[in-house]
């Protein structure tokens, strides 16, 4: 996803110089997010949906609920599936075809946050233990790539889940009968991912595309609503020191709190 090495070097110098003096090319402070704009319920056909704009980065998430089989090792729990599509219209570097490692990693980071924080009460999605459960599909659709897809997707996924409605039903002789009306999907935790880039040994949050192109390495920390860490992922070809990681955790805690207020209202 990087541009030519020469461009990167020139850019890197400029971006790094600015960051050393506590500034960024787009005028933000080192721990400032770009403006977050959130709309929910944007796709009527989906059970839940959200569209997030993080600066110029744009991600849409739609949820679908279907009836399926549970995993044999957890027969009384619903199933959660997260998929991410880096749609070719979102960036000149995205190509059509099966998911590559970047989209798989993106989906798995978002998945881990939701799963490990036990955001969805999967026990409540069991219809008939061992036989029938609800399957929640979370599909992340990247519409415009301007950096930090992870945080944009994590916000969009949570917002879409909170927007998700399930049809009412009753079970009659093993058959599911749809009843009128809807109930919200049972959500009990609100994981938020906060992503850092390391450039010239400095940590910045919410890297945009040009910063991503020059960053040495990346760290995503997902915090749940109680301030616990529920998932983490380092990416990129560089490294962190222990001090940097602990500093990142501290910042992530505050930032997750701020972002959560935008997503979870009331």
């Amino acid at each position: 996803m990087s541009s030519s090495p020469m461009v990167v070097r020139v850019k890197q110098k400029r971006i790094a110089e600015l960051i050393s003096s506590g500034k960024r090319l787009d005028g933000r402070g080192l721990t400032d997010y770009r403006e977050v704009k959130l709309e929910v319920g944007v796709i009527e056909r989906a059970e839940g949906s959200a569209r997030v704009r993080l600066g110029k980065t744009e991600v849409m998430v739609g949820t679908k609920i279907e009836v399926g089989q549970p995993f044999p090792d957890v027969p009384n729990q619903g199933v959660l599936t997260v998929n991410a599509e880096l749609v070719p219209l979102a960036s000149p570097t995205f190509e059509p075809g099966p998911p590559d490692e970047n989209s798989i990693e993106l989906a798995r980071i978002v998945d881990r946050g939701i799963r490990e924080s036990k955001a969805i009460e999967l026990e409540k999605l069991c219809i008939e233990p061992g036989k029938k459960v609800f399957v929640v599909f979370i599909d992340i659709y990247v519409l415009n790539h301007d950096g930090n897809l992870i945080d944009a997707s994590s916000i969009a996924a949570l917002a879409a889940l909170l927007n998700t409605k399930m049809f009412n039903y009753e079970v009659e002789g093993g058959e599911i009968k749809v009843k009128p009306g809807y109930t919200p999907l049972p959500i009990k935790n609100h994981p938020i991912a906060v992503t850092f880039a390391k450039i010239n040994d400095k940590l910045i949050v919410d890297p945009w595309l040009e910063e991503e192109q020059v960053m040495e390495t990346r760290l995503t920390i997902t915090m749940d609503k109680d301030g616990k860490i529920c998932a983490m992922q380092k990416g990129g070809h560089g490294y962190f020191t222990l001090q940097q990681i602990l500093e990142a955790v501290k910042i992530a805690r505050e930032k997750a709190e701020e972002l959560r207020k935008l997503v979870v209202r009331g």
Binding site: E116, Q233, K234, F240, L242
Partner: peptide, 26 residues
């Protein structure tokens, strides 16, 4: 990288408080 004190992979799943996380990393 033990001689450079550089952490090159870090992942986590589950639930840890910040304090527990620091201990686990160490």
């Amino acid at each position: 990288m033990p001689n450079l004190n550089a952490i090159t992979l870090l992942q986590m799943d589950g639930g840890l408080t910040v304090d527990e996380f620091e201990k686990a990393v160490n």
